[in-house]
Design a protein around this nucleic acid. Structure first.
Ligand SMILES: [Mn+2]
Ligand SMILES: [Mn+2]
Ligand SMILES: [Mn+2]
Ligand SMILES: [Mn+2]
Lengths: 219, 219
DNA sequence: AATAATTTTTAGACTAATCTAAAAATATAT
DNA sequence: ATATATTTTTAGATTAGTCTAAAAATTATT
């Protein structure tokens, strides 16, 4: 059974919605992520269900079957490994790689991706700190806490971002923040959830509540 | 103006037919290369003409415009650079890479391909000895002669193959022949154009006229 | 030059993927 | 509980890319 690039992108979209803890993905949430109409989503979801990749109950949202989940996981693996390649080998910045990976993930060769994994030194996390599933689909786990849950005086290292949109990543670059940055909380302002932090033991900066929410740190 | 993957593959097919010296590509020759019906070719050729990528005169075949030629050249560049990547970095064999490159060539990023070129050390020839156009579309040239034009006693080094189908390449592997192999002609048999050669100054083997025709050597 | 063979084009149909507009189902507010 | 708003599905249309069968044009053969 062959799966089109479009079907693959839908599977990945559903996967990423379910990943965030939702019990099922709604038609509207998928249409937003895919930037297509709700009608198109209904069509496609039916096709995925017919192929036994998804389970669809009318008006009750979509889940993935074991097979659908497997495919989405392998797409995530490919996407993230290519991102590592682009950053580590071709020296792209972390905010430049998503669109290219979005295309590269559809190249069909398990052998190639396993060799790429090896060539890259079997990385466990992508340039945004997201875990890379191994050849069996197993995700690495890591202890991480969003910055907004830190208390004054606590310290940590940035290991991931909740959202990896280009504007957010570029904003972090501007602030001098990236994976590996050392942070100590100096002050927290209840009023708007912003905070003053000490960056890499050298620079004091103020960041908004939104930034705090989107940064994951290891204590 | 955006060009679909299918349109790109047609451009490349037309390009490769014209490359062999033909003044124009016939509908049938394209349909053979693309493994589609002649009717589909006519349809597509009209679309390419409408986009000013090809010139089509009814019943007289197709040529490429400057723009069409440029695009086909860049696709060839991408295809061949990815083949080098797969062989040099991921350790694939020369007969394993074509299908993957056939997909990779459609990834849309000039910046990425220029960086890949650089990462690979700006190779001038692909794993089959075919020239890789540079960022401006210029092909490297090289003095090369098909083995069948060699005379008894002459020596040379294999630098390319005329045809790079998997069966042919695997057959060469079996014979112990590849790019860089040193060859001296020991005997030529007029009867069926086969020849006895000394391979790498150590092994005597007999090869058919067909093989002689498909190997390019540098004297 | 007429006929036969081959190549190319046209006509009409099909599928995947998309859309808009309207209908139906579900959720929310009064 | 009814009315209103939102979400989801259905219906019908469109475009790219493909096909087969038949018509038209070109090339080869007698
Ligand atoms: Mn994608
Ligand atoms: Mn990522
Ligand atoms: Mn291709
Ligand atoms: Mn090649």
């Amino acid at each position: 059974m062959k799966i089109s690039k479009t079907e693959e992108n839908y599977l990945k979209a559903i996967f990423s919605i379910l990943e965030k803890g939702k019990p099922s993905a709604s038609t509207n949430s998928i249409s937003q992520k895919m930037e297509t109409s709700a009608a198109s989503v209904t069509d496609m979801v039916k096709r995925l269900a017919k192929k036994k990749l998804a389970i669809h109950e009318s008006h009750k949202g979509v889940k993935l079957t074991k097979e659908g989940n497997k495919i989405a996981t392998m797409l995530t693996r490919k996407h993230r490994l290519w991102e590592v390649f682009l950053v580590d080998k071709l020296d792209f910045l972390w905010d430049e790689v998503h669109e290219m990976a979005e295309e590269l993930e559809h190249i069909q060769s398990k052998e190639m991706i396993d060799r790429l994994d090896n060539f890259l030194g079997n990385p466990k996390f992508d340039p945004h700190g997201d875990p890379i599933p191994d050849a069996d689909g197993k995700f690495a786990t890591r202890q991480q806490t969003p910055l907004n849950e830190f208390k004054v005086g606590e310290k940590g290292t940035v290991v991931g971002v909740r959202e990896s949109s280009t504007p957010f990543l570029q904003y972090l670059d501007q602030l001098g923040l990236g994976l590996g940055s050392k942070i100590e909380i100096l002050e927290k302002y209840e009023y708007d959830n912003s905070a003053k932090i000490l960056l890499n033991k050298s620079k004091e900066i103020v960041i908004t509540g939104k930034v705090c929410l989107n940064l994951f740190l290891q204590k």
